[in-house]
Amino acid sequence: MRHGSIPGARGRVLPMTLFGDPVLHAPCEEVTEFGSELERLVEDMFATMYDARGVGLAANQVGRNVRVFVYDCPDDEDVRHVGHVVNPRLVSVEGIVLRGPEGCLSLPGLEAGTERYDEAVVEGFTVDGDRVRVRGSGFFARCLQHECDHLEGRVYVDRLSGWRRSWVRRKIAKAPWGR
C-alpha cells in the first residue's frame, strides 16, 4: 500500500468465509512472498471489511490461509486505528480481563460476552516488509486479540464456556448460514 492511499479504495469485495468452513478452523501459514499479490490481498481485505461494516478482518475470513489481518477500529477513547499486519504475533497481553460484547463477520448477526485483556501488543510486518508494532487498549486491544485468534484457527466462540457457549452454538445451528 502506498503511503497516503486510502485503504481499500482500489480493492474488490471478496466473499466472506462463514463459521464451519475448515479454513477458519486451521492455523494460517506464514507469508513468505511480499509483493503486488500481497498488496492486492490487503486492499481487497480492506474493501471487504468496509463493505461488511467490520472493524477487523483476517485473511482466512476471505478464504486465504495466510497470516494477514487488517483493521479500522476505535479504542475506548474513540481514537481511530487503521492498518494491517502481515505475519502478526501477539507478543503481549496485559491489564485486566474484561468480558465485553464480541461479534465476528464470519458469524453474522451473533454476539456474545467474551473475555479479553484490555491491553495488547502485536508485532509483524507491513506489505512492504517493514517491521511494525501495534499497541492497543480497550476495544482496539479486543480487536487485535480477535484477529490474532483467527490466524491461529480460532473464533471467539472457542473462548466461551458454559451457557454462553451453548447459547451461541444454538444460535449458529438456527442461522441460515449455519446449516
Rank of each mutant, 00 (worst) to 15 (best):
128 D>G: 15
15 P>A: 10
105 L>M: 08
125 F>P: 03
120 A>K: 01
125 F>G: 00
166 S>Q: 15
175 A>L: 01
59 A>I: 03
153 G>E: 11
138 G>P: 10
69 F>Q: 04
62 V>L: 09
133 R>V: 15
69 F>T: 05
28 C>H: 03
100 G>N: 10
141 A>V: 04
16 M>D: 06
157 V>T: 12
116 R>F: 07
44 D>E: 13
177 W>L: 01
132 V>F: 01
142 R>P: 10
149 D>K: 05
4 G>D: 02
162 G>V: 05
26 A>K: 15
165 R>H: 13
48 T>P: 03
66 V>G: 09
19 F>R: 00
48 T>E: 09
21 D>R: 01
163 W>K: 10
138 G>N: 05
25 H>M: 11
21 D>M: 09
163 W>D: 14
167 W>N: 07
30 E>V: 06
102 E>R: 02
125 F>L: 13
179 R>E: 12
41 L>N: 01
96 I>P: 06
72 D>P: 06
163 W>R: 14
134 V>L: 07
138 G>T: 00
7 P>R: 01
22 P>W: 03
76 D>M: 07
76 D>F: 02
67 R>M: 06
24 L>A: 05
37 E>K: 08
139 F>G: 00
46 F>S: 05
151 L>E: 05
5 S>L: 09
77 E>W: 06
68 V>W: 10
107 L>H: 01
74 P>Y: 14
27 P>M: 09
33 E>V: 13
86 V>H: 09
150 H>I: 03
85 V>K: 03
142 R>M: 10
55 V>T: 11
97 V>Q: 13
172 I>K: 04
81 H>N: 15
43 E>M: 07
116 R>S: 09
